[in-house]
Amino acid sequence: MGIIYKERNAFVVRTDEGPIGEITYVPKDEHTWVADHTYVSPHYRGGNIAKRLLNRLAEEAREKGVKIIPQCSYVGVQFRRNPEYEDVWKH
């Protein structure tokens, strides 16, 4: 549901009604991003939107050759639970 757009240091899911979720990051240095915030509108929670946003962030990190420090609790939990993120996780 919704289309993911890149907006500055964020990926945002938008529907016809507007934004419904986002994941943001802050570049720490040339090779590292800090994933600092994930939000999904309450009406859309449980619908896999946060996971889609995290996957898009991880895809971008792979393309750019950077690692992610999971400051956001959602990202931290997903990194610990899912080995698919091991290649972008900066421990």
Rank of each mutant, 00 (worst) to 15 (best):
M1Q: 02
M1I: 10
M1W: 04
G2W: 10
I3V: 02
I3Y: 09
I3G: 00
I3A: 06
I3R: 08
K6Y: 06
E7T: 15
E7P: 10
E7K: 13
R8T: 03
N9S: 07
A10F: 00
F11R: 15
F11Q: 11
F11H: 14
R14L: 01
R14T: 09
T15E: 13
D16Q: 13
D16N: 12
E17D: 08
E17G: 08
E17F: 06
E17I: 04
P19Y: 12
P19F: 07
I20C: 03
E22Q: 06
T24R: 13
T24A: 02
Y25R: 02
Y25I: 02
Y25V: 00
Y25G: 00
P27A: 00
P27G: 00
K28W: 12
D29P: 04
D29G: 08
E30A: 15
E30H: 14
H31N: 14
V34T: 09
V34Q: 04
A35E: 00
A35L: 05
D36Q: 15
D36L: 13
D36P: 06
H37E: 06
H37A: 03
H37I: 03
T38K: 02
V40W: 09
S41Y: 05
S41I: 08
P42W: 08
P42D: 06
P42T: 02
P42L: 06
P42M: 03
H43F: 13
H43E: 15
H43I: 11
Y44A: 08
Y44W: 13
G46W: 02
G47R: 15
G47K: 15
A50F: 12
K51L: 15
L53H: 14
L53N: 14
L54C: 05
N55G: 13
R56G: 04
R56F: 12
L57W: 02
A58Y: 01
A58W: 03
A58T: 09
E59S: 05
E59C: 11
E59N: 10
E60C: 09
E60N: 10
A61P: 05
A61W: 00
E63H: 11
E63D: 12
K64G: 14
K64L: 15
G65V: 09
G65L: 08
V66K: 01
V66I: 00
K67F: 15
I69G: 04
I69Q: 03
P70K: 04
Q71H: 11
C72V: 03
C72I: 08
C72S: 05
S73E: 15
Y74K: 11
Y74G: 05
Y74F: 13
Y74N: 11
V75N: 10
V75Q: 06
G76M: 12
Q78N: 12
R81E: 15
R81D: 14
N82C: 01
N82P: 00
P83N: 10
P83H: 08
P83E: 12
Y85K: 04
Y85M: 07
E86V: 08
E86P: 01
D87T: 03
D87V: 01
V88W: 06
V88P: 00
V88I: 07
V88D: 05
K90N: 01
H91Y: 06
H91N: 10
